[in-house]
């Protein structure tokens, strides 16, 4: 190798730069082409996933619309010149009678292992939850991931009164605000309850303000 190096003719700098630039342009072009062709599918899938999640936690509303949190208020459409991308948002679902049935709120906080990302439906009038779905978690398989997979645990959030209170599993209380925690996965269960309560603390005043301004 060293011998080969020494006889290699000096390559002018402009060639190096041209090569790199050319390679960069070609690479960029290729990526843009693939991006153009895959982007619609990806976006459609993402939108579909979001639609499913929102529909699930709002118990299949007729339709829903996106609300943006902008300068401490909920707005339905972003004012001119403001990027909608970076804004936090929540979703309001409407029933057949065009009445708001509830808000779908997404939230994320640390769980047992890493961040737990979830979405839940909230009926602002009744102050109750409509449903909860974990979107992303790395909780212990077979134990902590029951917050996602255990139907009994998940179903407790349907109609639960807020704020939620976690109790030890198997107590069998009728209090609608009490969530039976999963045996052996207390931390994960508590994390879900905490995430929802914290998210409600943030969102309820916004929702109330929006209702009041109507």
């Amino acid at each position: 190798m060293n011998g080969a190096l020494s006889v290699r003719p000096e390559v002018p700098a402009w060639r190096l730069i041209t090569t790199m630039a050319l390679a960069g342009v070609l690479a960029g072009a290729l990526i843009v082409i693939v991006h153009q062709s895959t982007q619609p599918t990806i976006l459609r899938y993402k939108a579909e996933m979001l639609r499913r999640a929102v529909n699930q936690v709002l118990k299949q509303p007729e339709r829903y619309e996106t609300l943006y949190i902008y300068r401490g208020a909920l707005i339905a459409s972003v004012p001119e010149g403001v990027q909608s991308k970076g804004l936090d948002r929540l979703y309001v679902g409407y029933g057949a009678d065009d009445q708001a049935v509830g808000f779908a709120i997404a939230a994320a906080e640390p769980g047992f292992q890493d961040i737990v990302r979830l979405i839940f439906g909230y009926d602002a009038m009744a102050g109750r939850l409509l449903g909860m779905k974990v979107l992303e978690s790395k909780e212990t398989p077979g134990l902590g991931d029951k917050i996602e997979k255990d139907a009994v645990f998940v179903s407790q959030f349907d109609g639960a009164a807020t704020p939620l209170v976690g109790v030890k599993g198997g107590r069998g209380s009728d209090d609608p605000g009490e969530i039976d925690m999963i045996t052996g996965a207390t931390i994960s269960s508590r994390a879900v309850i905490r995430i929802i309560n914290n998210a409600l603390e943030r969102s309820v005043p916004l929702i109330a303000a929006r209702e009041a301004s109507r």
């Binding site: 906080e109 640390p110 769980g111 047992f112 292992q113 212990t140 931390i187 508590r190 994390a191 905490r194």
Partner: peptide
């Protein structure tokens, strides 16, 4: 260390 600082 799992659950550190997030158990509250």
């Amino acid at each position: 260390f799992a659950g550190l600082l997030s158990a509250a």
